[in-house]
Simulated scan of single mutants.
Amino acid sequence: MTSEPAPSLRIAYSPCPNDTFVFDALAHGRVPGAPALDVTFADIDVTNGMAERGESDVLKVSYAVLPYVLDAYVLLPCGGALGRGCGPLVLTREAGLDLTGRTVAVPGERSTAYLLFRLWAADVVPDGVGEIVVMPFHEIMPAVRDGKVDAGLVIHEARFTYRNYGLHKLADMGEHWEGTTGLPIPLGAIIARRSLGEGTLKRLADAIRASVRAAWDDPEASRPYVMEHAQEMDPAVADQHIGLYVNEFTAELGEMGYAAVRGLLTRAAAEGLLPPLGPEALDFP
């Protein structure tokens, strides 16, 4: 009598190069002893909503959504995106534009990018910006270029391509965050359902670490998966993207990573932008 194979874990992450790079070995069964994955690709605004509705076992989400989902999910200590020099940018057609009362496109109201933007705007635009318009992140730069909005908050590879749209960098949310806190920028988190149990959660975290190391050890092995989902991105841009967002914090949040996450969520709660977290909310089993 043979035992039934363990069911696959449903996981949702973005098609962006950092996520496909991190999860390539794990998604393709090249991490011995790891749980099998049933992968759904979705932009971060979609995965944030999936997490709030409890629609997957494992998800890549914005750190800004954690206070709304940590009753059902636990933050994994690896696999996410933190770093330095990798913050969201505010772009405009006109250099030096005053954003007071202006329309700004953002990639999601529960995104970490928008949270960092609100913390920045509280310091820099004291009279407040105007209407906030939520758009998929790949539509934001064309909307700014075409004058549909006055400014756009962009993430991911837009850091490397915005000049192609004739746009100007008005501000770097990461520079503001790092300059005021000295901490790395928390962007995307990996969360898993608490009901999976301590053993499965630890096994999953170990598997993600192993997948990250496998990608670092043999970057070419992940290239087909990365480019298949990179939305016609130039390979050099994909490499820049990976280099910026996959770093030591991806392999292990560590003391500095956890300090950055707590710092962001605590500061946002103090500003009334997020619900406060309990003292043990970020603890991993």
Rank of each mutant, 00 (worst) to 15 (best):
G130I: 02
E131G: 04
V134G: 11
V144G: 02
R145P: 09
R145D: 01
R145N: 12
D146V: 08
D146C: 12
G147Y: 03
D150E: 07
V154L: 03
I155G: 01
H156M: 11
H156D: 14
A158N: 09
R159W: 06
T161F: 09
Y165L: 10
Y165N: 01
G166S: 04
K169M: 14
A171W: 14
D172L: 08
D172I: 01
W177N: 02
E178D: 02
G179V: 02
T180R: 10
T180E: 13
T181S: 13
G182L: 10
G182R: 05
P184V: 07
I185Q: 08
P186A: 12
G188H: 12
A189W: 13
I190E: 00
L196P: 04
L196D: 09
E198W: 04
T200I: 11
T200S: 07
A205T: 00
D206A: 14
A207H: 09
I208R: 03
R209A: 08
A210Q: 04
A210D: 01
A215Y: 03
W216V: 08
D217N: 13
S222F: 01
Y225R: 11
Y225V: 15
E228G: 14
E228R: 14
E228D: 13
H229R: 14
A230R: 05
D234Y: 02
D234M: 05
P235E: 11
A238G: 10
I242G: 00
L244N: 14
Y245N: 08
V246F: 07
L253D: 01
G257R: 06
A259S: 08
A259I: 11
A260F: 12
R262S: 07
R262Q: 06
G263L: 10
R267K: 10
A269M: 02
E271W: 13
E271C: 11
